[in-house]
């Protein structure tokens, strides 16, 4: 187990190193002067020059790379061009809303997808199955901001049940915080839920055809217990895998959702940083998002042991 974890950890190093290099070279190898690009159209020569020294763009490329790697190793992501704050601090301040939003969205997606996928698999070919799968298809195809607009129009503007936008920090209480996340969470969960419902159904159908399920039925176990105790647990691995893969879509959706709902999280920071050409912040955010993606998928791989004791690392 330990050796597997270490090997698996080691395998993430080249991936993250690549992301780091990619982010480094992206700015430097783009045609044109990156300092002018960051400074924008209305900048004076002095402003451009100061950005150039601030980012070290006047040094030789090899030296820049060396400094960049050295700083990264110390967890230093540089300073924001716009606000002159450390990128790590800027990111740290914005983590809570995004983490809460992502958590709420994942839980909502699981709460929607697992029952629907199971229902669908147990009634394969029936009208219920077709309805659930059609719903999944629509959810899978609807862009996150279209869903968001629909939810806001119905539940915030027309019915007035939830706020149209904004985020209530956790410090002001769990319930107000959750209340502010219902609509954004649901909008973000839709795509994820659709994906998970489809995988749950497919995986469960495969398991239900296995011999041990027939045996469980034959020995007189209640059908509900057969599904809950035998089938679902064995169907879990593909579902958990998709939870991991879907994190990429979720993180992309966070950027959009936070912009629509005006939530001051990492996604909003991304959009703002891009519109302000605050490149050190964009670089830092890409690294952080990739790190989250890689870490979640590492955890997913390790969690297989929980569902299938035959798997040994």
């Amino acid at each position: 187990m330990t050796s597997y974890v270490l090997r698996r950890l080691a395998a993430t190093v080249p991936v993250l190193a690549f992301v780091g290099l990619f982010v480094f070279f992206l700015l430097r190898l783009t045609p044109g002067d990156p300092a002018i690009l960051i400074a924008g159209d209305q900048a004076t020569t002095e402003q451009i020059a100061s950005i150039r020294t601030q980012l070290g763009l006047d040094r030789p490329l090899a030296e820049q790379l060396f400094t960049w790697v050295g700083q990264l190793a110390q967890g230093n992501l540089g300073r924001s061009v716009f606000s002159d704050m450390e990128v790590t601090r800027l990111i740290g301040m914005r983590i809570e809303p995004t983490a809460m939003l992502a958590l709420v969205a994942i839980l909502m997606a699981l709460a929607i997808a697992l029952p629907l996928g199971t229902l669908s698999a147990l009634n394969a070919g029936s009208r219920i199955d077709r309805m659930v799968m059609a719903f999944a298809m629509v959810g899978f195809s609807s862009p996150v901001f279209v869903v968001a607009f629909l939810l806001v129009y119905v539940f915030a503007l027309s019915l007035g049940w939830f706020p149209t936008q904004g985020y209530v920090p956790l410090a002001e209480g769990l319930l107000p915080c959750l209340n502010s996340l219902v609509l954004p969470g649901l909008a973000l969960a839709m795509l994820y839920a659709a994906l998970l419902a489809r995988v749950t159904r497919a995986s469960l159908l495969e398991i239900l055809a296995e011999d041990f399920v027939r045996t469980a039925h034959a020995k007189g176990l209640k059908p509900r217990l057969v599904v809950l105790r035998h089938a679902l647990k064995n169907a879990a691995i593909p579902v958990v895998t998709v939870v991991g893969v879907g994190i990429a879509a979720l993180l992309g959706g966070v950027v959009v959702t936070e912009t629509v709902f005006n939530i001051p999280g990492l996604g909003r920071l991304t959009t703002d940083a891009i519109l302000r050409r605050d490149y050190p912040v964009v670089q830092g955010l890409i690294l952080v998002f990739s790190l989250v993606y890689v870490t979640v998928n590492l955890l997913v791989d390790l969690s297989y042991v929980l569902f299938d004791p035959r798997i040994r690392y």
Binding site: P14, V15, L16, A17, F18, V19, F22, I247, A248, A249, L251, G252, G253, V255, V256, T270, L285, I286, F289, S290, Y293, V294
Partner: peptide
């Protein structure tokens, strides 16, 4: 793999 580790929309 490295490119895929960056969420597509973000990239």
């Amino acid at each position: 793999d490295g490119l895929m580790a960056i969420p597509g929309i973000l990239l």
